[in-house]
Design a protein around this nucleic acid. Structure first.
Lengths: 156, 156
DNA sequence: TCATGATTGACCTTCGTTGACCATTATTAT
DNA sequence: ATAATAATGGTCAACGAAGGTCAATCATGA
């Protein structure tokens, strides 16, 4: 939202295209030149903003005629999709990770905005208020897993 | 009341902007420099004068292009009722207690059926999965308290 | 005096930026 | 064919740029 840094601007640029295109294929050097940054910054943007937790699939090829392709994942089968997310969660997640998952669920209309906000608050550090960080992340993962499972089985 | 100390002055400054703006995004160092104080004083002001109890929502990001965003919340007309519920919660609650609270909230149309269901699942024994029963009930109370507080205000 | 709130600064965590070096693929010269 | 070379993208560690935490200290009013 608040694009002060280059990464945010590049993110916005790519997402604007992806809003209409489903997938995009870029040339790393070109984009880097266009936004006046080093090529590896593109990797940073992709890693932090277009990962699987956020619902994107990335493929690339090196060498002459190389490319980076970013694809917006769309769920054909709901159950497969949720199961896939469940696998991604693992046993521990950070507050930021949770944020990404919730955003994705909202984007895919599996949660309302309010539901996502409530879940975000449930997963906040200050809400959980446990001393041990490991325990906190485990607990947060448990909450998300329970949510995903509930979306899987109890649809109404 | 009137600003004798820097904290009051910074508070007044921010609230004056928020009187017209609904939300404000600041750069901690800039504000600190502007009021000739150390950056951490901004945190102090926010913590003591812009917390959730006082109807504000604060988000921040570190690193390059970081920010602190303060959002003014709109209190609902059911604030008194929610405060009353908050007093009832105490520090620990059982799964059954949680059920009753959620039913109340649903009956009063403060939660949708789905939202209540999600919250119930969050508070389940098997979701929280903590060994100690005291800890479990404390945690469950924390979740409910966070929910009630979030319902007290409306984000725009 | 003493309790409470305000101020300060040392140290920490997170996020973004950069560049050196690496790996893979396509093209061109032999 | 094979070997060099050019054209891509990938990784990673160092550094810089925010904001966060916490405990010590100071100030003030009851």
């Amino acid at each position: 939202m608040t694009g002060q840094n280059i990464s945010d601007i590049i993110e916005a640029y790519l997402k604007q295209i992806l809003a209409e295109q489903q997938q995009i294929e870029i040339n790393r050097s070109d984009i880097a030149a266009q936004f006046n940054c080093v090529p590896s910054q593109i990797n940073y943007v992709i890693k932090t903003r277009f990962n699987e937790q956020q619902g994107y699939w990335v493929e690339s090829k090196r060498g002459g005629g190389g490319y980076i392709r970013i694809e917006k994942l769309q769920s054909t089968d709901l159950d497969d999709y949720l199961q896939h997310l469940l696998e991604l969660v693992g046993t521990q997640i950070t507050e930021n990770d949770l944020q990404m998952f919730l955003q994705q669920l909202y984007d895919n209309q599996l949660l309302t905005k309010r539901e996502a906000q409530i879940m975000a608050i449930m997963g906040e550090h200050k809400t959980l208020n446990v001393s041990n960080q490991e325990a906190e992340e485990t607990l947060r993962a448990n909450l998300l897993i329970a949510l995903l499972n509930s979306l899987r089985y109890k649809r109404s």
